[in-house]
Design a protein around this nucleic acid. Structure first.
Lengths: 159, 159
DNA sequence: ATTGCGCGGTTCAAATTTGAACAGCATCGC
DNA sequence: GCGATGCTGTTCAAATTTGAACCGCGCAAT
């Protein structure tokens, strides 16, 4: 690896679109969710994931990995949400040391209340701004980016 | 606005690629920068922006807007960086209440030290994973997303 | 059985981030 | 000239986030 391969103009355009768009979209959605439903984006996503699970529950670690958050951060947030009655901690059946976070009826209700506004905002700031071709390119390209980074976390350095 | 227009499959794929990719890339870069140069991604970007300015200095608010961070957050970080000798506060010439953050020689040195590894990582996790077509779509599409959100902040509700 | 290690979660202190309240300067209309 | 109003940046307390240290359990080798 000799000298650095700097980004050319086209690559820089990509980078300078990706980073600010990420930050702005994240900020916008977080704010909208908080205002409209009192949930942070992280809390919303926790509910989404739990709700999507057939049993309505997931292990803490599983959740942390999916949400790309530290374990301790998740412990904290689940604690907050438990206080708020949105989730409930249960013990994992087959592993005494495991902990399940389970969505409550109240959690589902909060989700249903928050979802329409959230989806509308997602459309407004991202989905409806993109052409179908762009959406496909993003789904494919960033999907690959995502998968590689996730894979790296597990196997670590497949190269 | 009758019922919610939920995301269809293709749109959901886009969304479920965008969010995790954003988070993972941000985390990866932040970590790499911290390890390799002791700078957080935010600090790195502050240096980049200051360095790009002809005078090597920018107003605090200007910087906060570009970096998509709260004013108070920027005050804090610039404080940290000032302690570390990477930047220096100066008074804005034409406005007694304005404050300029100026990059120092030490700051430039830190930037030069950090840049090669950072760019390499950006290539590794994002740029080189994408095809040229995908890069173009992302530059165009997310560029538009970015611009709309920035415009909204200024004029606010152009609709 | 027993020792030792590894995993799953939590605790803890420290760093960061945020929004609201505040202080100084600027500017515009009266 | 003088007060009203609006910026700019900072301060402050509260919320969140992070990584390292830690605790209890399970599991494998001895």
């Amino acid at each position: 690896m000799g000298h650095t391969r700097w980004l050319d103009d086209e690559e820089m355009r990509t980078w300078m679109a990706f980073i600010p768009a990420s930050n702005l979209v994240a900020r916008e959605l977080d704010q909208q969710l908080k205002e409209e439903s009192g949930l942070s984006h992280l809390q919303y996503e926790i509910l989404i994931h739990l709700n999507a699970a057939e049993t309505g529950a997931l292990r803490m670690t599983e959740l942390a990995e999916r949400l790309i958050n530290s374990k301790s951060g998740l412990t904290y947030q689940v604690g907050q949400m438990e206080k708020a009655g949105l989730v409930q901690r249960r013990q994992c059946e087959w592993s005494r040391s495991g902990v399940l976070a389970a969505i409550t009826d109240e959690g589902r209700a909060a989700l249903e209340r928050a979802a329409p506004g959230h989806v509308a905002k997602v459309r407004e700031v991202l989905i409806d701004v993109l052409t179908p071709e762009e959406r496909k390119a993003i789904a494919d390209g960033l999907g690959r980016v995502r998968d590689r980074l996730i894979a790296e976390k597990d196997g670590d350095t497949c190269w």
